[in-house]
Design a protein around this nucleic acid. Sequence first.
DNA 1: ATAATTCATGTGTTCGAAAACATGTAAGAA
DNA 2: TTCTTACATGTTTTCGAACACATGAATTAT
Lengths: 355, 355
Amino acid sequence: MDLGKNIRIKDIAKLAGVSVGTVDRVIHNRGRVSQEALKKVTSVMEQIDYKPNLIARTLGSNKNYRIAAIIPNPEQDPYWSQSNKGILQAQAEWTQYGINIDLHVFDLFNKESFITTVQEAIATKPDGIVVAPIFYHEALPVFDLLKTEQIPYVLFNTNIPEATPLSFIGQNLYQSGKVAAQLLHFGQENPGTFAVLHMDEDIQDSLHLVEKEKGFREYFSSNGKAKFEIMALNLNPSDSAFETQLNELVNNPNLKGIFVTTSKGSAVAASFLEKHSKKHIRLIGYDLLDENLKYLKTGTIDFLIHQNPKRQAFLGISHLVNHLMFKKSMPQQELFPLEVITEENLGSYLNSGLH
Amino acid sequence: MDLGKNIRIKDIAKLAGVSVGTVDRVIHNRGRVSQEALKKVTSVMEQIDYKPNLIARTLGSNKNYRIAAIIPNPEQDPYWSQSNKGILQAQAEWTQYGINIDLHVFDLFNKESFITTVQEAIATKPDGIVVAPIFYHEALPVFDLLKTEQIPYVLFNTNIPEATPLSFIGQNLYQSGKVAAQLLHFGQENPGTFAVLHMDEDIQDSLHLVEKEKGFREYFSSNGKAKFEIMALNLNPSDSAFETQLNELVNNPNLKGIFVTTSKGSAVAASFLEKHSKKHIRLIGYDLLDENLKYLKTGTIDFLIHQNPKRQAFLGISHLVNHLMFKKSMPQQELFPLEVITEENLGSYLNSGLH
DNA sequence: ATAATTCATGTGTTCGAAAACATGTAAGAA
DNA sequence: TTCTTACATGTTTTCGAACACATGAATTAT
């Protein structure tokens, strides 16, 4: 197998009794090859397990690729600011290989803005697009456009299976709800109430939240957990009744734990728990936002589930690069592990690179 | 900055008014360059932020590298079998780039075998070595040999700072002990006992175990945890008293939880808990061995801390490749996150790739 | 003074694949 | 027949850096 040199196109040509040009045409389906020659080459190719030298291939086809990255405005939300960091990191990593990444941001609370931003991105005729399509329904038509334009695209954060992307990078949200449930339930002997808290300006990415709640409820619907009551609340921080509702919740004497489904929400819930000295009520949320970490360290937040937005964005771009530049095939879906963050293992996550 | 083309050696040569050969000599410190020329080139290089095209560089210096990977015999222990998988994966990934990986295994329970295996590996004059030096003291002399032989090496699993490797891949074991403690303690109101269980044929990698215990104890020595008693036990499965000791432990009415510091041990402990119907006693161990997963799924093991041996080995080799082939500088130390595995998030870890 | 040596510097080839380019041959049109 | 046109096939250049080699000048030895 690995006896000496690797097989080169030249070798295949010699074995098949044709020129390198013909082999090249066969490999890339460029046509202009006789049946006869094609048969000879393919038969040699099947015998020998030809693996193109990706280094040489990349150098030879000295292309520069432009990738458009589309995310919500990072300034509107710390979660998306993390995604942005992942994009910047990808830029730093790939720029020397002739990859240019153009960032296009849209308004987190404006569906219309999403569509126009994607259209703008397409108009620049990029070689590939990486996008976090948080507006599910609105996204569908633009993917048709991408398909007719023949632009390969990778989704992250939110999956849209109908869009049949090159690849999706994200998490199993349903399962993450189950993880949250398990952690809230862990070691709880006595009956009580658990609350699912959807806290959001808007219910734009409501699909996310619904999935999480489903998983959460599913966990408690299984054997021997009937003694626990599950309640779900939709709270809008800019709503006038917001404080009252939250106060009422944390003062519920039966309340054993809260599962906050949005990344920003857990810090808000934590502040209420601290204010009412209800730190014994368990709290679990999402993501390593600075605010969240503060409460994780004081013990008010017990666990955070890490969605790793930075890495999602980074990997999304890397997948696209591997597809465009190295012609590598990618897993059609890459679901990140559901990382459980505690006060004690937090440091190990903050210090570790991406890799 | 990124206006159009990247700077090539040719461009630097033109700007400095010399030939590409001279620039090449400057870049690689090959000498044979006049003070004058050197000054011109370096000044240009400082102005322009030259980033060599790694693709072209790799193709140009058409070297084949041989890397020796040294680990305990995978057949002796499922943990090291995982490491082996990481090595195989690295092989699959890098073989097309002209990287050859030779596996050298030693006897997990034989220090002498470790030394001779390393010496054998060195005798093959590899371009780099990746090694899991589980025998701390025995390892020290062989690293002197590696230094005099000028062979770069990467450590994983066990760190030996005195060896000043190119890079170390592993985990903060002390901190992992704290994580274990936190999880056992989580939600525990009443006083009780927690046991640290070192279960091993030999105490070869005792340093590991000591570190973990230290962290565990440290956690409980902090504010308000005086009501918990910590006990530590060294148990040898091949010892005649083994069963008795373990039976005694699990029947201790004060026992709230067990922290098993070895990867194989937690399944053994779990089997005893199940036998005595003591599943309510919390159990936490290390690593995703098949046996462990079985008990994680039945709920006897509550948490596993994932040391990710597969990924450690894979990354160790990748670091070396980046150093040898791409001349990239590597972080001198890469500590993996302390991943907490539960029944519910296990699947997401098993399905996810390495990357 | 001439050959030998040293050393700065420039030129050319190589890596393997991609892609532009050149040649050759057969079928159809004028 | 001769000129296109189409298409199979072979040859050459290119990518950017590494490295072997060639050149030419200054120094040293004889």
